[in-house]
Design a binder for these strands. Structure first.
Lengths: 352, 352
DNA sequence: CTGAAAGCGCTTACAG
DNA sequence: CTGAAAGCGCTTACAG
């Protein structure tokens, strides 16, 4: 490895002068600078980062911590879009991304090692089911700046960027209702499986129905299934039998449930959207060459990543800055899977 | 940051003893070890990696260099599957992954900075169109171990892991032919856009047709389009007019072209697979909820990533080890998009 | 404008 | 079994 000393020797100056030239300091004679720069170019010298890191305590690297497995196709989309935003910000800050999977299943893996080792200046967490307490304590102990994406840890000290899931859930029902639907079902996820986000969508769904004046009890139209397509299909098949009258629209709390949901509906003899409309949430289903263009809610994932990174850099440059909480809006996207129901029975007079 | 000195002070030993305990050396009295370990636990001491890196010249990090953008949906699948294999190997070697995009478009970004800075011990390149000469020279200059995935750099010094695209192309034609097809078209990519892989698939296609005794000139059945769906559709529409007789099967050199290709065929009034069979290459199209189960070739992407990382670790531990070249096979996957053609005119007597 | 000194946190010989 | 010394590559005061 070429070091400052090598350059210094060949240029006939001390290594300190080389350091000055590399860092663009002004207290260097112009002729010296040129001479040194020439040797730097000849030798291809580039300052090793370890020496610098040891000095400054900074390594210009941030970690992305996520339990999302690389081979899970739908959730990967979420991760990748967020990453693209993080990456943009990192590029602007000359910072690299250390990629740390925190496997959901393989608990024995010590995913905090890179942080303990001070291999990163800060950390962005994505898709953690719950923000673990141990993690929080470690972060505090080691004064490691941290920003969480897609969750809202209680602790005041943690910054986060999230979307307004309640408003999006509410608004989605409005959009469905506006088109004439009155019996709307909701496909969620058990709260034990994910964080409050999905519950918020469900709460928005409930509140919207209350506000819009539905006399129906929404509970009977709410299904909660885990990520497994088979599970989704079975629960929908069972639920349909109990929903009287049949819903004319199904709001899926995540796009990744849409294919299985549509299959289940079709298996029950319902055509989408002729017999039942389907709306998703997240916004990547239509990138997947799915057979049907799905109305959905477009999460601003790259923006979330970008903002999270920007906040993180602020914390890094200025440890102790008050924590930041940002809530981004989720625009509704119309799509072929959402149409007016066959029989509208005059509800259209309801004004919007 | 808690350092060896802090531990040493509290435990009443020198920091060297702390180093010994941390590294599990044997020349430490048992009672001392226990005493020191207790303080380590109390203080939550973990050796910072910068000091170690400065000493050993190693940082237990490898870089993944790729021009594949995070937001390009189909190619991302390729990248992620490869990454999952790399990640597995890294975990076994207690190594972290530094993620470096080398943007295809934004040339001004200095994607070699992390390597020059010795921020990584080695580098895995994925999806580079051509392995750039400058990159190679830099790697040699800085003695940075490197393994390339999905390409075969000429230089003897570079290790790579690739798939047998020629054999897969050849075998695919056999599979199609076996089912009775005699007029088979090929959708490739201009050689200027990608590396020899796609050309190899095309060569396998050609050779298979020659061997199987097709009297047709395959040139008229070969289309080359870039990644743009619009481009693919236009070229297929034009090509179909010139193919006489019409092909009864289309072999797409990559799954990412399949949706556009099928659209083009359907726009021309051809049903898949009733009028024309379609076969892909890569193996992720069927993960995308595509409307049709596609016959394709399943690239062993996680294995490629895993092997590449294993080879890289060998190079890192033992710089100067002869370069390794590995070629993995690509199994053919039958699917609903490949069926027997409507009229078979007695070709079935051909023996396999 | 330039360099000698000290130190960042660690490890590796070398003495005792 | 334990510690003092030197050094990894760099930067930051401090002298001159």
């Amino acid at each position: 490895m070429v070091t400052q000393k090598d350059v210094a020797g060949k240029a006939g100056v001390s290594f300190i002068t080389v350091s000055r030239v590399i860092n663009g300091e002004h207290n260097v004679k112009e002729t010296t600078r040129i001479k040194v720069q020439k040797v730097i170019d000849e030798l291809g010298y580039c300052p090793g980062f370890a020496g610098k890191a040891l000095n400054s305590g900074k390594c210009n690297t941030i970690a992305v911590l996520t339990p999302i497995p690389f081979d899970e196709d739908m959730r990967m989309f979420y991760l990748m879009r967020v990453l693209s935003g993080i990456e943009k910000s990192c590029r602007e800050h000359d910072t690299d991304i250390l990629f740390c999977l925190s496997p959901e299943k393989k608990k024995e893996y010590d995913y905090l090692r890179p942080y303990r080792q001070r291999k990163v200046d800060g950390i962005i967490c994505i898709g953690l089911k719950d923000f673990p307490d141990i993690l929080l304590k470690e972060l505090m102990l080691r004064k490691l700046p941290c920003v969480v994406i897609g969750d809202r840890p209680q602790d005041k000290a943690v910054s986060w960027v999230d979307t307004d899931n309640y408003a999006a859930g509410y608004n989605t029902v409005r959009e469905i209702w506006k088109r004439g639907h009155r019996f709307i079902a909701f496909l969620g996820i058990p709260s034990s499986l994910y964080n409050a986000n999905v519950t918020d969508r469900e709460n928005g769904f409930r509140q919207a129905l209350r506000t819009l004046g539905s006399s129906e009890n929404p509970d009977e139209y709410i299904i909660r299934a885990d990520y497994e397509p088979a599970h989704i299909k079975r629960l929908i098949a069972e639920a349909l039998k109990k929903m009287i009258p049949l819903p004319t629209a199904l709001f899926c709390s995540t796009d990744s449930a849409v294919p299985a949901a549509v299959e289940a509906l079709e298996a029950a003899g319902l055509r989408v959207p002729e017999d039942i409309s389907v709306v998703g949430f997240d916004g990547f289903i239509n990138k997947m060459y799915y057979k049907l263009n799905i109305a959905t809610n477009l999460q601003p994932l790259p923006e979330m990543g970008y903002r999270a990174a920007e906040i993180l850099f602020e914390h890094i440059e200025n440890y102790g800055t008050p924590s930041v909480r940002e809530i981004l809006q989720v625009p509704f996207m119309a799509g072929a899977s959402l149409a007016a129901p066959k029989s509208t029975s005059g509800y259209y007079t309801h004004d919007f």
